[in-house]
Computed example of a mutant assay.
Amino acid sequence: MRAIGSLLTLLGLLLLLPAMRCQAQTANFATWENDTWFKTDRYYTNAVQFSARSREDTRGEEVRRWTNGACRLLGCSDARFLFTQHSIGQLMYTPADITLRTHQPFDRPWAGLLYAERQWLFLAPDEASLTTLTAQAGVTGRLSLAEPAQKMFHHLFDRPTPQGWDHQVGNTLALLVSAERRAAWPMLSGALAGDLRLHTAGHWRLAAGNLMSYAALGLSVTIGKHLPLVAPAPPGIVNRVGPLDTACRLHWVQCTLVLGAEGRFMAYNLFLQGRPWRDDPGVAPHRWVGELSAGLRLDFPGTRSRAHGPWFAQLRAIRRSAEFRGQAEDRPHIVSSLTLGVDF
């Protein structure tokens, strides 16, 4: 099955974690997203990403000039560098019926992306706001290798062969830059019971590029113990609970729950509209898109060793509204996300 194949890829990436560890690193993790778990096997159908975070500030002169200039505009000039995140990944989109060889003009186009991404995070002096700057570069079309990846997994696990990749969005160099600000909302935060707390944060994000261009607003509610005022978006949930001080009431696992909502105004989406001025398949997008999410992070303090900190797992469910005209409104699209990683 596509889901099992993706999980094997994820586990393969996890084998690289010990080898890529360095003294300044804070975490390595791999994320697998798929919609099969909720029996909505269509549209945004699969993604695998491997990430490494490092406290070491390795920005070169040009990157430092760009991030400093962005922070002057965004009001984070006095913020301290928190960490850099390096990621590589692949994602794919398909129509609802992958067994049709012919073009499906009223369904989501076939599309794939193979990309590398770098993020720089800056924490305000009062630790109540967090700014994230992101630069992503990748390739779409046959260069993304989405077609052979999906066909290989379907062949290995005796699933129907995807037939429509001849109608995918074509090859292009895809670029995306974005800025996000997360800020704590103290008025909607406080103690629940004992050391268990609820923290609320709001965020905005602006993204521009020939991959996507959009503006987003959202909020998140985090429930756990000893939480920071504001934390990165999952899987960046931070839970510094000791082995005997856990929201799960079990000595061998620590828990943090995150609920979120986000709304976006989509100015452009290559995965739906295709490349400008090219003969790509495409559908008419909805400009306003929303999603609800729920995530649970589990930390396992007993897995700590001299070489690394505890391992963690994070599960998320994401329900998205219809992204294009003609998408079945009565069939909600829900994507599951599994992240496995280790802290240092």
Rank of each mutant, 00 (worst) to 15 (best):
residue 91 L to G: 11
residue 59 R to Y: 05
residue 48 V to L: 11
residue 83 F to Y: 13
residue 53 R to K: 10
residue 55 R to G: 10
residue 60 G to E: 06
residue 42 R to T: 12
residue 71 C to T: 11
residue 90 Q to C: 08
residue 92 M to S: 08
residue 71 C to H: 11
residue 40 T to L: 09
residue 38 F to G: 11
residue 51 S to Q: 09
residue 64 R to G: 14
residue 83 F to E: 10
residue 40 T to D: 06
residue 55 R to S: 14
residue 64 R to H: 11
residue 82 L to V: 03
residue 88 I to D: 02
residue 87 S to L: 01
residue 63 V to Y: 13
residue 62 E to N: 13
residue 55 R to M: 05
residue 47 A to S: 15
residue 91 L to Y: 11
residue 82 L to A: 12
residue 84 T to E: 12
residue 78 D to P: 01
residue 77 S to E: 04
residue 49 Q to K: 08
residue 74 L to V: 02
residue 39 K to V: 15
residue 73 L to Y: 13
residue 79 A to R: 02
residue 93 Y to T: 08
residue 57 D to C: 03
residue 64 R to M: 09
residue 41 D to V: 08
residue 49 Q to T: 15
residue 48 V to Q: 11
residue 76 C to K: 04
residue 70 A to Q: 05
residue 54 S to E: 09
residue 57 D to L: 04
residue 70 A to G: 07
residue 55 R to W: 06
residue 38 F to N: 15
residue 92 M to K: 09
residue 67 T to E: 07
residue 37 W to G: 15
residue 43 Y to S: 01
residue 86 H to D: 10
residue 66 W to F: 11
residue 47 A to T: 06
residue 91 L to C: 10
residue 81 F to H: 09
residue 37 W to K: 10
residue 47 A to F: 03
residue 65 R to K: 12
residue 70 A to I: 05
residue 94 T to Y: 06
residue 45 T to G: 02
residue 51 S to C: 04
residue 51 S to D: 03
residue 54 S to G: 03
residue 83 F to I: 00
residue 68 N to Y: 12
residue 83 F to A: 08
residue 54 S to M: 05
residue 87 S to Q: 06
residue 87 S to W: 01
residue 82 L to D: 02
residue 75 G to V: 01
residue 57 D to W: 03
residue 58 T to L: 09
residue 65 R to W: 13
residue 80 R to K: 08
residue 70 A to D: 02
residue 91 L to D: 10
residue 59 R to N: 05
residue 42 R to K: 15
residue 37 W to R: 14
residue 76 C to R: 08
residue 70 A to M: 07
residue 75 G to K: 11
residue 44 Y to F: 07
residue 39 K to H: 14
residue 65 R to V: 05
residue 46 N to T: 08
residue 74 L to Y: 12
residue 47 A to Q: 15
residue 63 V to M: 12
residue 82 L to Y: 10
residue 42 R to C: 02
residue 67 T to A: 07
residue 41 D to L: 02
residue 55 R to Y: 03
residue 65 R to D: 08
residue 47 A to L: 01
residue 74 L to N: 11
residue 70 A to L: 00
residue 59 R to M: 05
residue 49 Q to A: 15
residue 83 F to M: 09
residue 67 T to W: 02
residue 58 T to Y: 07
residue 78 D to S: 13
residue 70 A to Y: 05
residue 76 C to F: 08
residue 66 W to I: 02
residue 44 Y to H: 14
residue 76 C to Y: 12
residue 54 S to P: 07
residue 38 F to P: 04
residue 64 R to K: 10
residue 41 D to Y: 06
residue 52 A to Y: 13
residue 65 R to Q: 13
residue 93 Y to V: 15
residue 87 S to N: 02
residue 57 D to R: 03
residue 79 A to P: 00
residue 67 T to R: 04
residue 59 R to P: 01
residue 38 F to I: 13
residue 56 E to C: 14
residue 44 Y to P: 05
residue 89 G to C: 04
residue 77 S to I: 02
residue 71 C to Y: 08
residue 81 F to S: 04
residue 66 W to A: 11
residue 76 C to G: 11
residue 41 D to W: 14
residue 53 R to Y: 01
residue 50 F to L: 13
residue 85 Q to F: 00
residue 69 G to C: 01
residue 50 F to K: 04
residue 87 S to D: 09
residue 86 H to L: 07
residue 52 A to P: 06
residue 94 T to E: 00
residue 41 D to H: 06
residue 78 D to L: 02
residue 48 V to A: 10
residue 56 E to W: 04
residue 43 Y to E: 00
residue 74 L to A: 08
residue 39 K to N: 15
residue 46 N to I: 07
residue 46 N to W: 14
residue 55 R to P: 01
residue 83 F to K: 01
residue 88 I to N: 06
residue 49 Q to R: 15
